[in-house]
């Protein structure tokens, strides 16, 4: 939302501005209300959960400390953080390098490799899940962190996004892509 003054010609008057704010508030509430319901339900007792009323008769704030004693919450949290951290680190590192290679460097066979990457994006992740599982079993990676920190199927997507924005900023001297290519530089509407 940096340079948006061009989209609305006249700056809206105070009344119209407030009306817009009201509309946005209503729409935002549509997004928030399910979560509000969740929070309110979290304060209910187990017997009250089946009750369609929104508000608990007595807010049980003790439900929250109880989470930590019922399930090993901190352990789960640590698992998530470790896995997410490694995945992010590896993804950003490798994808940034690859995107640079695809977008800014010229090397023979580059476009073919890029389309190989793109092609695998169209494969359902479940296709790879089946043999990946077999491989994990074979390498003894089942039940280990390493097995989870493997390359997730969404990886090519990250590169595609990164790559396509780099395509868009390529100079005119580089090879022009045909119409079958990804969102191309000429057409980015700049």
């Amino acid at each position: 939302m940096t340079e948006t003054k061009g989209i609305s010609s006249k700056p809206p008057g105070p009344a119209r501005g407030l009306g817009l704010h009201g509309l946005m508030t209503l729409l935002s509430l549509g997004m928030v209300v399910p979560f509000a319901w969740m929070v309110l339900t979290s304060l209910k007792s187990l017997a009250e959960v089946g009750d369609p009323a929104w508000l608990p008769k007595q807010a049980l704030w003790g439900n929250y400390p109880e989470v930590f004693s019922v399930i090993p919450f901190l352990r789960f949290m640590a698992n998530s953080v470790v896995i997410a951290g490694w995945v992010t680190l590896l993804q950003v590192f490798t994808s940034a390098l690859a995107a640079f290679s695809f977008a800014r460097l010229q090397w023979p066979g580059r476009d073919r490799v890029f389309f190989l990457y793109l092609g695998t994006m169209m494969l359902p992740g479940l296709v790879m899940l089946i043999p990946n599982f077999q491989l994990m079993v074979r390498f003894g990676l089942v039940d280990s962190y390493l097995g989870l920190v493997r390359r997730p199927p969404s990886m090519p997507l990250a590169r595609f996004c990164c790559g396509s924005s780099c395509w868009a900023s390529r100079g005119p001297s580089t090879r022009r892509r045909r119409s079958t290519g990804p969102v191309s530089g000429r057409s980015s509407g700049r």
Binding site: T94, L97, M128, P156
Partner: peptide, 17 residues
């Protein structure tokens, strides 16, 4: 530049594919 990514790509995408 591509190699780190390509290794993972081969191991966890191409081979399973």
């Amino acid at each position: 530049f591509l190699l780190p990514n390509l290794l993972g790509f081969c191991a966890f995408t191409l081979v399973p594919l």
